[in-house]
Amino acid sequence: MSRHGSRIAGSLLVTSGVLLAGFSGAGLAQADPVLPPALAELLNSGSAGLGSVGAGQTAPDAPRLASVPNFRDVAGTGAGYAGANGKNLNKGVFYRADAIVPNDADLTTLEGLKLSAVYDLRSDQEVHDKADRVPAGAEYVRIPILSGNINDMVGLIKTPEDARNMMRQMNQAFVTGANEKDGFKQLLTELANTPGAQVYHCTAGKDRTGWTSMLLQSIAGVNDATIMSDYLLTNEYNKEWAAKTRAYIVATKGEEVAKLFDPLFGVEASYLQAGLDQVKADYGTVDKYLTDGLGLDQATIGKLKAKLLR
């Protein structure tokens, strides 16, 4: 890639999110016409998810927010994802999101959820570029989780496959990086010990946020296929932002640059799988990664499980 192309990449990317002219991370629709289980559940239950109540008087589905498009419930929609011991995940406890920059209407909606804490996983530069607008009553907690020197990494991108490899390496760093492991340990500990509904986010709500969601769902006993399809929902929730972001790149930098960075706008199964394969290689299981890798004790994991399952 030319130095000009590298500078473009550096301006587009900060850690694992895409920052461009007010658009945060964007996702690309998957080519596979078969709907994953989580997406089918989302569409069947209604995408707005406002005020609906699932079986057994579950909490309402997470609201869809126009200005925070990747805001959703870790537990899924409807009755909640199936977890361990025949239980469903408990909705309205843990939310995930992209940058919390709501418009006035969405801010009012967020305040209606009575959030007790907002965890911002972004770097200093990301926060500087797009500071959170924290709902009233929520504590704002910074837990920066970095994934290497992005400018160095993007300088090596010469093909779309190079971009995919960069995303795979980021997920591997969630397993091998000391900073990353410390950050995830702190986040999970805070989630376990803080009462009330909580939300965590990065810039696009897909990489650091996606990894955290995988860990919580694994703790709750959600099966691998559902975890993966939930991870891929970023591409559905962020598809309008993806289209706008890509159109802007094409208009300002050209189609070839847009093609080069297409893999960075959303998620692909191989990104998360690269991290999971690293977990298997280094620790054998996610459970061992949580205890031996992150250093979480069983009491903390137990608190998370109790919150996640109903």
Rank of each mutant, 00 (worst) to 15 (best):
Q198I: 06
N149I: 12
A59P: 06
Q217F: 01
G56M: 04
I249W: 04
V101M: 01
R164L: 14
Q125W: 14
A163P: 14
R246H: 06
E180S: 15
T109S: 09
Y95M: 02
D104E: 12
R122W: 08
I145D: 03
Q273N: 11
S2W: 06
K280E: 00
V34S: 08
V222Q: 00
L121S: 06
L233P: 02
E190R: 13
V14I: 13
T189S: 12
S270D: 14
Q217T: 03
I143E: 06
K206L: 08
L13Y: 14
A131C: 11
T109M: 02
R64A: 15
T234V: 11
F265A: 00
G22K: 13
I145A: 03
P160R: 14
E190D: 08
V141Y: 05
Y81F: 08
F174M: 00
V250T: 15
T189D: 12
L65M: 07
F265S: 01
D162Q: 10
N235Y: 05
L13V: 12
Y81R: 01
D104P: 00
Y248A: 10
V53H: 06
E255V: 14
A192Y: 05
P144R: 05
G155E: 13
A247W: 10
F174W: 08
A55R: 11
A299D: 12
S229D: 03
W241D: 07
G148F: 00
A299R: 14
